[in-house]
Design a protein around this nucleic acid. Structure first.
Length: 420
RNA sequence: GGGGGCGUGGUCUAGUGGUUAGGACGCCGGCCUUUCAAGCCGGAGAACGCGGGUUCGAUCCCCGCCGCCCCUACCA
């Protein structure tokens, strides 16, 4: 009656949602949003051994975090056992399926073939001769995957099935079930799989970052969406950054790649850094304060923002601005040699005389000292950096010193000098 | 074994019967407030899996091969 698109994301709750599943969810969501359709969420929990409520909650949580909101569901597949049973009974009574050692098998024609018209791969033909009569119900009567999927997609009015390529080989079975039920199949689109760096399909076994791991490591949902969208899809020769609106507008299944892709966290990090820098300082501050559980981070955030790639990096990079830290031995060994202590003494003297204690004055003083002692900038700045931060990495040195204040800066330098 | 899918630099991708095969990450070098990061500039890195064909001409068309992956469960 209506031509509106209805897509579904149907994860099996056997573990956390990993990036492959997240990408499938994203593509479904983009199809729905881009065509004014409905995004249905269905939990395929018919494997009672492995499906747990905790896993279901994890998946919902991951989707919420990614801001991939569903319009319908979550439907529980196991709750639809009655419907599956009806379909099985009907197939048996109509002679389309038969009992075999307690289980029920679908009759697959010996001749002919089933053609799947895939939006991404074109027509894919499967000869019936290669498909044996397969089991659709266990001997305890419970439905098997292919039966449940076919019936659910049919009942839920799914118009487009967008899922991983690992399901392509099972598609003719589902089409056959649908045909036996007298129904037409939906349109299919099988996405290329995401592989681990070992070339195998991504699974829970892999280092495979789950969505919550990405969140814990400080990635932003928008960056993850942008990155994931590009894993298997490209718009043109140069565009890399897409707002979510642009994604919705430009995404299309026919531009999805056919070859499997490998998740590259390095690139995600880079992209996340770009998103992080786009954030208003107040927003970034709020996120970090919530994450770290303390307030008053704004000044530190302001000078650290341009050096972070993930939220997780903030504290190691800028925590010294809020509290003293242990000295990093390796940094010490690298920096405090060849007269560095003497230069630090000189730097302390120079800083002690800075008034007002603000960034321009601090910079002038330290640069003046560099001139005076005829050293390379780093030979003066690094000891100071080590003294105030405990390490060799920090936000800009002048900003950092200014933020710390004169008293604290001098105190830290003294403490460092006392160690020499 | 059978069936199916896929094959552009390390990775993600753009691309067309005739292009110096484009972009991005990463990598190397330079600049910059040293380090790290960002930014900017420059660089290395792909004979477009291999072999045949079709064609005046193939990365893009056809065939074969090889490789990888998926399915082939009373898992999903």
């Amino acid at each position: 009656m209506s031509s509106a698109v209805r897509v579904r994301f149907a994860p099996s709750p056997t573990g956390a949602l990993h990036i492959g599943g997240a990408r499938t969810a994203l593509y479904n969501w983009l199809v729905a949003r881009g065509r004014g359709g409905t995004f249905v969420l269905r939990i395929e929990d018919t494997d009672r051994e492995r499906s747990t409520p905790e896993n279901v909650e994890q998946i919902l949580d991951a989707l919420r975090w990614l801001e991939l909101h569903w319009d319908e569901g979550p439907h529980s597949q196991s709750a639809r056992a009655g419907r599956h049973r009806e379909a099985i009974d009907r197939l048996v009574s109509e002679g389309r399926a038969y009992e075999d050692e307690g289980a029920v098998r679908l009759r697959v024609p010996d001749e002919g073939s089933t053609v799947v018209d895939d939006a991404i791969r074109g027509e894919v033909r499967f000869e019936h001769a290669a498909i044996a009569d397969f089991v659709i119900a266990r001997s305890d009567g419970s439905p098997l995957y292919n039966l449940a999927v076919a019936v659910d997609d049919l009942d839920m009015g799914i118009t487009d099935v967008v899922r991983g390529e690992d399901h392509l080989s099972n598609t003719p079975r589902q089409v056959l079930i649908l045909a036996a039920l007298g129904a037409a199949p939906p349109r299919y689109a099988h996405l290329p799989l995401l592989h681990g760096s070992d070339g195998k399909k991504l699974s829970k076994r892999h280092e495979a970052a789950s969505v919550q791991e990405l969140r814990d490591r400080g990635y932003l949902p928008a960056a993850v969406r942008n990155y994931l969208a590009l894993l298997g899809w490209g718009f043109d020769a140069e565009t890399t950054f897409f707002t979510t609106e642009e994604l919705v507008e430009r995404f299309s299944l026919d531009r999805v790649s056919r070859a499997p892709a490998v998740f590259d966290e390095k690139k995600l990090r880079w992209m996340n850094g770009r998103y992080l820098r786009e954030l208003a300082v107040e927003d970034l501050t709020r996120m970090l304060e919530e994450r770290i559980g303390r307030r008053g981070l704004a000044p530190a955030v302001a000078i650290a923002q341009e050096k972070m790639q993930t939220l997780e990096e903030f504290w190691p990079l800028a925590g010294f601005l809020l509290e003293r830290r242990e000295l990093d031995e390796r940094a010490w060994a690298k920096v405090m040699r060849d007269g560095a202590p003497e230069r630090l003494v000189r730097a302390r003297e120079a800083l002690a005389g800075v008034k007002p204690f603000a960034e321009p004055e601090i910079e002038a003083a330290l640069r003046g000292l560099v001139e005076e002692v005829g050293a390379k900038p780093g030979e003066v700045f690094q000891p100071v950096r080590l003294a105030i931060s405990g390490t060799s990495i920090s936000p800009g040195i002048f900003e950092s010193v200014a933020l710390l204040g004169q008293e604290e800066t001098l105190a830290r330098i003294d403490a460092t000098l006392a160690r020499v």
